[in-house]
């Protein structure tokens, strides 16, 4: 790691650590926590869609599965919370892999519609399995986590907790993207026949992509359930899947940090433009169409770089493209 990078990372971490000390507003902290939860969630979609190029419209179902699994494990079986979160991740990984099997035969938009159908079936089960999920009324009173004492986390503690896991997720996805795994995913995305000729087991990596993406969604779902303390099937509809899709595409699919930026933009938008709250999903739609027409690679694509202070002179010497 270069010194420059190290300084950048330390700077980001310091800013994130100092925020709750400076800003004493619950509202701001709530938005930041929401962004961090959604960030973890969207990083999962980034692996499936951005890296492996598998067009999934069922990500909200993984999210919901994580939330419900974690909440039910704690409430019905009395699991400790960290174990429930791990249980949620295992559950979503298994379902991700299980979903990966049938969709292997499908390409592109067929995959989108099959995952959309999967998400809708999941939501119907949530709504109709009254004895387990309380149906459309939702699950209230999910306990909040607590560390050493008996008092549950307050907002500031929760903020540190979530941001820590968000940074860990970001780091992990970066490492995945830079490893053999990430290169295999991107080879699949660009041309899966060619990838197969090159000796990449496409079946294995497609399933792995779904399972990995599912793990992140499960983690985010678990955090969400124990943060809001109330979940209902309405939170995990296809509209949320489409919103996540818009976040990934707006930021730039396949760039890891891009989808996080897309998340920040799309979540801050309704907070900043309060009067447009009703129009939020309309704006998401417009963003999708406009981004696809004018900048399909997203805001954060290859031609944007962090400023490189050291190499400035060298870069200037290069011929202009």
């Amino acid at each position: 790691m270069s010194l420059n990078k190290l300084i950048q990372y330390l700077l980001i971490i310091t800013v994130l650590a100092v925020v709750p000390l400076v800003v004493r507003s619950d509202y701001v902290l709530h938005i930041l926590v929401t962004i961090a939860i959604y960030g973890i969630l969207v990083l999962g979609l980034e692996i499936i869609l951005g890296q492996a190029g598998l067009f999934s419209l069922g990500h909200a179902a993984f999210y919901g599965m994580g939330a419900y699994t974690s909440a039910l494990l704690v409430m019905k079986l009395g699991f400790p919370l960290w174990l429930a979160a791990i249980g949620a991740m295992i559950m979503t990984a298994i379902f991700g892999a299980a979903l990966g099997f049938p969709v292997l035969r499908l390409r592109g938009d067929y995959l989108a519609i099959a995952t959309l159908g999967f998400g809708e079936i999941f939501r119907l089960i949530l709504t109709n399995w009254d004895t387990l999920t309380h149906g459309p009324m939702g699950l209230p009173g999910i306990p909040r986590p607590h560390l050493f004492g008996a008092t549950p986390f307050n907002r500031v503690e929760y903020y540190y907790f979530i941001v820590f896991f968000f940074l860990v997720s970001l780091f992990l996805v970066y490492r995945i993207s830079g490893s053999f795994l990430g290169r295999a995913f991107r080879a699949l995305r660009d041309d899966d026949d060619a990838a197969e000729f090159m000796g990449i087991n496409t079946t294995k990596y497609k399933i792995l992509a779904f399972a990995l993406g599912g793990v992140f969604a499960g983690l985010a779902g678990s955090f969400y359930a124990h943060y809001i303390t109330f979940i209902s099937p309405d939170t995990f509809t296809y509209l949320d899947s489409e919103m996540m899709l818009a976040m990934v595409f707006l930021g730039g699919a396949g760039t890891v940090i891009g989808p996080v930026i897309g998340t920040i933009v799309l979540l801050l938008f309704p907070e900043v433009f309060r009067f447009l709250l009703e129009w939020r999903m309309l704006v998401v739609g417009v963003v999708m169409v406009v981004v696809m027409i004018y900048r399909p690679q997203g805001i954060w694509s290859a031609d944007v770089h962090w400023p490189k202070f050291k190499r400035r002179s060298l870069a200037l010497a290069e011929p202009r493209k």
């Binding site: 592109g108 938009d109 989108a112 489409e242 309309l282 998401v284 739609g285 696809m292 027409i293």
Partner: peptide, 15 residues
């Protein structure tokens, strides 16, 4: 094709 599909999803949200 996927770019067009995404645009179609956006259009569906708009409508």
């Amino acid at each position: 094709r996927l770019v067009v599909t995404t645009s179609a999803i956006g259009m569906s949200l708009i409508l």
